[in-house]
Design a protein around this nucleic acid. Structure first.
Lengths: 138, 138
DNA sequence: TTAATATCCTACCAAATTAGTAGGGGATTT
DNA sequence: AAATCCCCTACTAATTTGGTAGGATATTAA
């Protein structure tokens, strides 16, 4: 399951996607509109910025905005930044790989099943974008 | 990600699948062969039993065994018993559904994406079985 | 019928993760 | 210079995870 933090991230990003091209959006605005604790939201947006998904402006008239079009931000990317691995096992993860103890990967049946599962999941999550969230919700 | 407990469960079930039809297998045997802490494994096997996946025999010559053929135990079932929901959001879960606060499900775009993702994942996890784990690992 | 064998059950505990809070620092605009 | 707004470090509470401890209960065999 996605953490609550990740769900917050998606809600905030949806808000930023709605305002794409219209200049910066205040953290406080997002916080109120999407009912996300202000300080917690600060952390989240900052992480997304460090991961190069957002840009920010300080001072009056400042705020956050998407760095690229909502059509270019897929769900897998967001999940990986805030939530972590998408695969069900570390030894199957493309971005967070970790070897598992006492297991010969070449002959591990579970690993093979989880690889297939990961591919099926990624096929969706890498194709669907913030734009799709907006559009599907309309 | 699957919890360590769930990975233990799969390893134990693999062992039981290998011995399907050969009578009960001792917890201590599984514990040693698969390197799973004995007492923790007791809990796991007991949960699987309560979920009607295993049967047990007490006393000398006792132990655990699969209640049905490895071909009839799919991975989704195991994950749900030990790990919990397979969906990425509670409001999308078939077996652990929970309504999310402040969200009109009919018009929630994220929910729609996560429903599609869940279906893609389940299509694999409900088709693949313990037998597939054994066979793929061979 | 008693001793040995195994699962079953309740309760506890430590470490890690998650979900925040607090408080001020630094940049930018008016 | 003052107001605005993001940035950063550190702390904390609650929950989940990954176990342990110790005995109760059921079964078998001598």
């Amino acid at each position: 399951m996605l953490s609550r933090k990740t769900r917050y991230a998606f809600r905030a990003l949806t808000c930023l996607a709605e305002n794409y091209g219209k200049g910066p959006v205040l953290i406080s605005h997002i916080s109120e509109e999407k009912k996300i604790p202000l300080k917690f939201l600060e952390n989240i947006l900052n992480e997304l910025k460090k991961a190069d998904m957002l840009e920010s402006k300080k001072g009056k008239g400042g705020g956050y905005m998407l760095k690229v079009s909502p059509k270019k931000i897929n769900l897998a990317k967001v999940i990986r930044i805030i939530n972590g691995p998408i695969a069900l096992l570390p030894c199957v993860s493309l971005n967070f790989y970790e070897k598992c103890a006492d297991c010969d990967e070449k002959h591990c049946g579970l690993r093979k099943m989880m690889t297939i599962t990961r591919d099926a999941t990624l096929k969706i999550l890498e194709k669907k974008t913030l734009h799709d969230i907006l559009f599907a919700g309309a």
